[in-house]
Design a protein around this nucleic acid. Sequence first.
RNA 1: GCGCUCGUAGCUCAGAUGGAUAGAGUGUUGGCCUCCGAAGCCAAAGGUCGUGGGUUCGACUCCCGCCGAGCGCGCCA
Length: 583
Amino acid sequence: MKQIINDLIAQALLELAQASRIPADLSINIQVTPARDASQGDYASNIALMLAKPAAMAPRALAELIVDALPAVEAIEKVEVAGPGFINFFVASSTSNSVIRRILEQGEDFGRSELGQGSKVQVEFVSANPTGPLHVGHGRGAAFGATLANLLSFVGFDVQKEYYVNDAGRQMHILGTSVWLRYLELCGETIDFPSNGYQGDYVWDIAATLHRENAGRFHRPVAQVMADVSADAPAGDKEKHIDDLIANAHGLLGEDEYSVVFDLALVTLTEVIRVDLQNFGVEFDRWFSERSLSDEGLIEQAIRRLQDNGHVYEQDGALWFRSTNFGDEKDRVVRRDNGQTTYFASDIAYHMNKFDRGFDTVINIWGADHHGYIPRVKASLSALGYVADNLEVQLVQFANLFENGVKMSMSTRSGEFVTLRQLREDVGQDAARFFYVMRKAEQHMDFDLDLAREQSNENPVYYLQYAHARICSVGRQCIDRGIAVPAADANLARLDNSHEQALVKQLGQFHERVESAAIRREPHLVVNYLRDLAHQFHSWYNAHHFIVDDSELRDARLALASAIGQVMRNGLKLMGVSAPEKM
RNA sequence: GCGCUCGUAGCUCAGAUGGAUAGAGUGUUGGCCUCCGAAGCCAAAGGUCGUGGGUUCGACUCCCGCCGAGCGCGCCA
């Protein structure tokens, strides 16, 4: 419809230019937007306002001129000039009503489009270190990423969802050593647990498994474990302390035995995370191991490519990537003076690998604390010869968690955090998923746990679900009264009150809204849309009865109600929220 | 100090490429079920869109300064 109006205006302008009523050399960018108010019709264009100055004419006069030159079309009932010079288009109701038929015919496919044309997109998200269960801070990225992936897929992109498992870093060694120390305690040793170790209960659980299945196989005397270990905080350096412990773990156990402990921790927690996400309605197509990068020589390959391209130099015994040549604020080390490659080197290899896998667009969803990391990753892609703009980083702000009015800590290290699982059990799957995508990702967000728990009935998600349940209830009423389920052949011309016209208009904008949400990477646009739709429905419901004696009117209203229910289902599904038939 | 993301109603937040009278939810106040589900509807009240400039026919939106918040500035991951 928008395109039709666009073309009409273009034709009118062309005609006016040929008739020399307006200058012929105007640069024209026609904008047609859905009108905000019914009195302003269905669509509006500001073209006259934009062209007034270059055409040296009064906006309203120009608007009148354009309106007079507009070709008549059946779909457009009326055109008006309003306000400072807007042109408002009133779509013929028979044309807008037809969306109801399309919805009923297409069902769950209504809203799909071919916008993406099968373009390959990878969405990488969550990717939390497997050093503990997911907490509520991870939930936002999980919900956002999953919804964005759904949206992209819905509008025709070929989407792959990936989780990058950081299974190679120091954090994982701290975890492995934490498990081992707890295991030693289970063996009867008395240990001053390192302040920088992982203190959560799940570490005990893994240690218990280790002890149950292996008895004293990894037992070493505490005197050896603590040998040559520097002091812990507060007297000493907690980082140095834990690193010494890790070194002793390697030395005392030997690499093979150490890796048994390490791998148990890794596998257990990765599985915990996978199950948590699955229960949260988030599934990944691939779990990509950081370790596999070095195992397959990709890190060396990436560094070599940077070297070959002349973007690497040596200094102070380390190997540096000259990222400043590509807009980064300083150069970055890729190989330390001790010969080990850095986490950044892994990331270079990882992103190289992503594009080598043929993705047209790669979307990383990162916590806002990683924003400083973006320039160097993009720099590395440019240096390797890729188009850095094909990597998009969507930052997701933290959700501050409040309980009893107090901001809560969310430290995985200290073990003090609310897990995603607890949140889901507290407020329910739907409310949790909905809450996370309600707000724009870049918006800082406060999450009041008390409110979510105690007043969950007032969560906006129920507002949408209730609209759906009500529609289903009407359907049940029809069955009870022996009224046939409304067919798409109802006389939709009977939908003539203002509520109905507003609803039809809203339904007609679903496609556009979904596409816009996908392209802009803003799932909350769909949330807003559904909330508006639900409001319009509830309003209508209160003002008019559907099951009336006039069967023609009744069928028309039932058709509209079914269509609303269908769109509500489709929209909620994108967000991973259920559309219950009863509540 | 530099950089990123922000600042909209008492509170939590929307305001799609700059448009017409800045909107929801929640909270407050007052109405609406002999009739399809009151987890709903209708109405009232509530705003200097952080602040000061600039661009524009037009700015919550774009540009600059300032104030304030969160985060980031390792041969950590």
